[in-house]
């Protein structure tokens, strides 16, 4: 088993169009590093030098990781991570 990561439309150019990809790791940070190895450029759209990008929502199963531990959130095989761009504006 691995961790399923659901990718939004706007980032599928990094995954050859795939709606979901698989990765591994014990934290969200490790998972994103693992994904980066196979999908170069993806991590940079999710994370900046301060942590998770402000206008990207990441959910572990059905919880927003901002209310868990951000990039330090623990993940394990069988989890589903969902990435959604925040819908926002002025």
């Amino acid at each position: 088993m691995a961790i399923e990561v659901r990718i939004p439309t706007i980032l599928r150019n990094y995954t050859d169009g795939a709606k979901a990809v698989e990765g591994g790791g014990t934290t969200l940070d490790e998972l994103f590093a693992d994904l980066e190895a196979r999908h170069p450029g993806l991590r940079d759209r999710l994370v900046d030098e301060k942590g998770l990008r402000r206008f990207v929502n990441v959910y572990l199963n059905d919880e927003d990781v901002r209310f868990l531990g951000g990039l330090d959130t623990e993940v394990s095989d069988g989890d589903t991570v969902t990435v959604l761009p925040a819908v926002a504006g002025g």
Binding site: L84, A88, G89, G90
Partner: peptide
């Protein structure tokens, strides 16, 4: 944001609606 100059979908509501 409940703002006259900005909006943002609530992240959990967005998750459920997108799902």
């Amino acid at each position: 944001e409940r703002s006259p100059t900005f909006y943002r979908f609530d992240s959990m509501e967005q998750f459920h609606v997108w799902k």
